[in-house]
Design a protein around this nucleic acid. Structure first.
Lengths: 339, 339
DNA sequence: TGAGCTTACATAAACGTTTTTGTTATTGTC
DNA sequence: GACAATAACAAAAACGTTTATGTAAGCTCA
């Protein structure tokens, strides 16, 4: 492998100046189309690969977007957000540099510092579960978009799932199937999802003129075991609900198990709908679990797209705080109520 | 925000040359400790943030490691590999730039090109499921380590799970619990995991003097539904196995369902062990699924560590092809055989 | 004591681009 | 046919580091 070919070698081979090569490749300056084309083909034939370190240094645009998330290992959602962000970034000739804080503030600070040293053009500050967050001090002044995270007070763009809408969609589906006594297995943590989905649950009841019954709500950690216990409690009641709306698929899996233990068939004796559309569970359960999908890919995409727009935009449009729609994915866990 | 502070500003403030600042911060050159310390504290007080674009350009070391994977969204393993790689990389002052091919050769080529434009120091070429791979042409000459992927013919380092050992561990566990008729729900694809785990299954039988019975093997796609069907076939036989070894947790979940349908209690009537230790399933199933963990985090770590060593190492040690041990994670799905 | 080391720093070139500022033909205008 | 405007390119500075080379002072030792 001879010496790396740079813009200089291309210039020599094409018989023009380096300026002309730069302009030809970037589309800048004013050059004849003929020259542009010739230079490009020469560059191609020489296998020229632009050096982004150099161009970033000079132009002050690294073409790198930093992606910082709180955890990436324990959740299958991370991948979809990353993928969405990556796809959108690639469309703008940007590439992702990812850093994971593992929920450790010090690691996060170090990671962000590394990103800034690499002079990322902007940052996607992501959470794996919808959360309210503060902007890390180091990021003030850096173009930033929140992903699956929101911050009331800041004037930054953000995208989160429409929690209330998701719950409403789920409940509408159950109510339209004929159910009126619908239990809700809610999460126990005080996070936007918990509050939003509960609001959606109540809104749906109100919308259809069904009185709210506090005793139909059971709280559970977002795991299968606790979900099973919570569901068992609701199903043990003499006036047990004919349907359960679950905070997420893992809790729903617990509800399946509780139904089994109570000898209730799904969906004949009990209908279930939940939120997540985590395919490994929803598809695997018997019968398949009808679930509301959280639009992770789309949110990732939106975040990167929005960031790219801010980076490109001379006239910086006002920040947007998006709540993204969550679609219903039908499977076999919902049927008409008994009797 | 005044003008960005660079090495030059630090030099002025400390009353030394830029050379001295560079040496102070990097630890190079020969300077008095006093000067080094003083410069460092000045840099700190000025909030100096080194520009890696510039240093990379000059020193030809970007301190970036490229991470290219085939898919990242459909699997929960990706996160752990990424995390392991990131942790090890961070220890060497490197950061990860990730690119996802989505199993599309063209996208992969484009992604790799982007990484090379950014002059990554090396590349971790990862697969989400253990696979034999070819080194993309664009990567020849680039320091590369295979992660969860292997290539017989190349002289590059790689790390994969010890598939045969994993199966052996699983089978040993069942045999030591007293089982002799053990069914195997194997995957249907022709991949190293399929072959390796089958080899481990047979090796375990041989080791314990149990004759191999072809009819105890059922093939299934790596999903719950097909796993359920395959398990049902084995369990329908009059001389049904007392235990099942499953290719992965999703198939094992199918086996659980098949057992339910056949009115067999786990582990009383049927013991099950599988491979993956995919917590969302293994922990959630009732009873908990005993499973062999694939060391994704450790493999990611090893890959980044090894790459860092190659990058640092003047004397490039010969490439290593590692098969990593897979530990057994005990839960409640294994018991003694009936009667 | 002075040649040769060593210590502790400084000067300046280099990395591969982009961008600012020319420069030279060519065209158009009256 | 003089003057400005434009088109098409080139020269050189700049981006913020690292590194090769230089240099001055202090020390060693014959």
């Amino acid at each position: 492998m001879s010496k790396r070919v740079g813009i200089r070698e291309v210039a020599a081979a094409a018989g023009v100046s380096v300026t002309t090569v730069s302009h030809s490749l970037s589309g800048g300056g004013q050059l004849s189309d003929a020259t542009r084309k010739r230079v490009r083909s020469v560059a191609e034939s020489l296998n020229y690969t632009p050096n982004r370190l150099a161009s970033g240094l000079r132009s002050k645009r690294s073409q790198i977007i930093g992606f910082v998330s709180d955890e990436i290992s324990t959740t299958p959602y991370a991948g979809n957000m990353l993928l969405g962000a990556q796809d959108a970034a690639a469309a703008h000739d940007q590439v992702l540099m990812v850093v994971n804080s593992n929920r450790n503030a010090q690691l996060e600070a170090r990671g962000i510092d590394a990103l800034l040293q690499h002079r990322v053009d902007g940052i996607i500050y992501a959470r794996m579960y919808h959360q309210a967050v503060e902007l890390p001090a180091a990021l003030s002044g850096v173009p930033t978009v929140f992903l699956d995270a929101s911050n009331e007070s800041s004037d930054l763009s953000s995208v989160v799932p429409d929690e209330e809408g998701a719950a409403l969609t789920a409940m509408d589906h159950l109510i339209e199937a004929g159910h009126r006594r619908i239990g809700y297995l809610n999460n126990i943590d005080d996070i936007p999802a918990t509050r939003g989905r509960l609001a959606g649950y109540r809104a749906a009841l109100a919308k259809h003129g069904i009185p709210f019954d506090e005793s139909l709500i059971a709280l559970s950690e977002s795991m299968t075991g606790p979900g099973r216990d919570a569901a068992s409690r609701l199903l043990a009641r003499p006036d047990r609900p004919t349907a359960l709306f679950c905070f997420n698929d893992r809790i729903a899996m617990g509800a399946y198990q509780a139904a089994h233990l109570a000898r209730l068939a799904i969906p004949h004796d009990l209908s279930i709908v939940s939120i997540d559309n985590f395919e490994v569970l929803a598809d695997a359960l018997l019968p398949g679990l009808t679930s509301i999908a959280l639009p992770h890919y789309e949110m990732g995409r939106w975040a990167a797209e929005r960031l790219a727009a801010e980076l490109a935009g001379e006239a910086d449009s006002p920040p947007e705080q998006i709540r993204m729609h969550c679609p219903l994915v039908l499977r076999q866990s919902v049927g008409p109520p008994l009797r």
